[in-house]
Design a protein around this nucleic acid. Structure first.
Lengths: 192, 192, 192, 192
DNA sequence: CATGAATGAGCTTTCATTCAT
DNA sequence: TATGAATGAAAGCTCATTCAT
């Protein structure tokens, strides 16, 4: 019992340290020694939990991607009417990016960089299926523009990444207040 | 004369090599030796044109940013009516990302990674001022939603980055045909 | 009782594992962790039976050397006439190298490498005294050439190491049949 | 010109350092850092001349094997009568082992250890062909016992390795004087 | 006795940078 | 200008050994 907690703790500490260092210094300036030190652990210990640096990055990516998609579909049911369902998912994702900036930044870095295995990248893509299904349903019902899902995603969900980055740099403040206005813009983009 | 051309050639070859390697391998797997070899130049030669690796990356970033913004405002005049002006800029940017994928990928990598100096990052931001001015004008004239420019940018220009990435991975084909439909989505998002 | 047997078993398992790994991978690629795993034991356990890696190697060397010399003088009595005595010892050694290839290989590795303590090396040398005595007797009786024992050993016993190696590599088959011919060669070398 | 000499010098210095360290400490205690220091060179420099540690060892092995076999057949011509030819080769090898103890020790270590690639090991074997041919000729002419070449080698050439080791440990002195007697023993072993 | 997670010194190797040519 | 051999600090990783359980 205590053992399992400890193990989880150390793995977690290492993932946290990696997240933090890669975010702030980039993959290229996040040496294993620093990761170990930040996690309060000896360099050799990393290799008890991860095969190598690439594996550490991959696992971090997948872990975060999982927690992200779990968050994204919280309280969502596919029986919901299209607009309501979309609203819930959109708000979930927006809130995730607002309150888990570190994680969101890391995902952005992974998605724009060849630092994650292609296999892990594929793995991470699977998780948005319910959103795809919802968009399809919306198109069938004549509520959403009959365009590629990539297009619909690009103009509704993806912009949140930019707002998050802007916010982090202090240029823009995305808050509960203006979230509704922002959703309106997203919805205007794709509604029929 | 030939010498000056040569100089330009070598600098250019080095920037090209860096662009290519960083795009395909990431900053962390683009050693100076490989950059030199790809550029057909000796490692030592790099330091005749650039102070160090960071400087090389910075200059590449600024160079591309410049060429990008030049492209973005091609044929654009601030006297144009708001929608026409916006349309021109939007299409310019879309076309740039379609035809200069390497450059666009690199910018995306820089914007989501701490690989470029903050100073250079600031430097790169200045270039979009005419777009900002245009959006402001649109808001004054009641044509565009009275929202933060960050928001307006996020839901019109920024999505193009996602489409470019999707296209590069073969998931989506952004072409001349559907460019018009795509613009419509962008415009719907911000028009009043 | 069971405990003592167990103890012996574990020590034995560790020695066996070491023998096997050092033979196949070399000393430099036989880490304690692999030895432990091969022996079906925890890494920490090794240190209950051996002081450290060097001690493990040393003890293995001495153990094998002991069993080898016991085998070498099996059925031998110093009262035997010289040629008969020599024949018995020679056949014993030949048979040992034929049927205990792993052990013989390990000894060869130890004898040509600085992997064993000098002390242990000295320790291992003592065991051939009866053979030395026999050679001396042979020289006194005018049956064997009056040469250094090193020389006599080099041209009678030592060649068996080469034949064993050749056999292991599949180049040569040393078997019961040709053992007699081989002995003849050895004897021709040193007989007067 | 100066460059090539320098290059050869550095490669040579590294091979020498490796020879010395592996002989005295064993493969397992001959770290690249020590090799570099002994060669009067920086650790990184090793990798300008060798792919990795294994390659360094392999090349050293092959180099020595080559120089050994060149030495072995010095002044030898296949037109010589069998005994004279054999005598020349045997003396050459004996002299090599007497005057190039370091090299001979290293070869012995390689031949009794899995430290050299199998490919390189094969490569090293090719060089004794003229001796094989000579033994065959001797057998045809009824001068040498009609036995396997492995056997003939084991009882004539191979014993020299033992004498060299003994000599190095100060137990035995193989010198010009007793070389003739020693040859006699070898010849007695295989002559018909 | 036995475990095996943890350690950290030390290993092999890489790579940004220099400098004699 | 241009070279590229050389550097050496630092990277990723291994492994003999320890110690709390």
């Amino acid at each position: 019992m205590t053992e399992r907690i400890k193990i989880v703790d150390k793995r977690e500490a290492l993932l946290d340290a990696t997240l933090h260092l890669v975010n702030n210094n980039g993959f290229h300036d996040a040496p294993m020694s620093k990761i170990a030190k930040t996690a309060g652990v000896s360099p050799g210990t990393i290799y008890l939990y991860f095969e190598n640096k690439q594996d550490l990055i991959n696992q971090l990516y997948i872990d975060i991607k999982k927690s992200f998609s779990k968050y994204a579909f919280n309280n969502y049911k596919k029986q919901f009417p299209v607009k309501k369902g979309f609203e819930i998912i959109w708000y979930n994702i927006a809130n995730y990016k607002l309150s888990n900036i570190e994680q969101a930044m890391f995902l952005a870095q992974c998605d724009n960089t060849p630092m994650v295995d292609e296999i892990s990248q594929q793995e991470g893509l699977k998780h948005l299926q319910p959103l795809i299904d919802l968009l399809e349903k919306g198109k069938c019902e004549g509520i959403i523009k009959p365009k590629s899902n990539y297009l619909l995603y690009a103009f509704t969900i993806y912009p949140l990444a930019f707002l998050m980055t802007s916010q982090r740099q202090g240029n823009y403040q995305l808050e509960k207040d203006n979230l509704a206005e922002t959703f309106q813009i997203a919805w205007d983009a794709i509604k029929l």
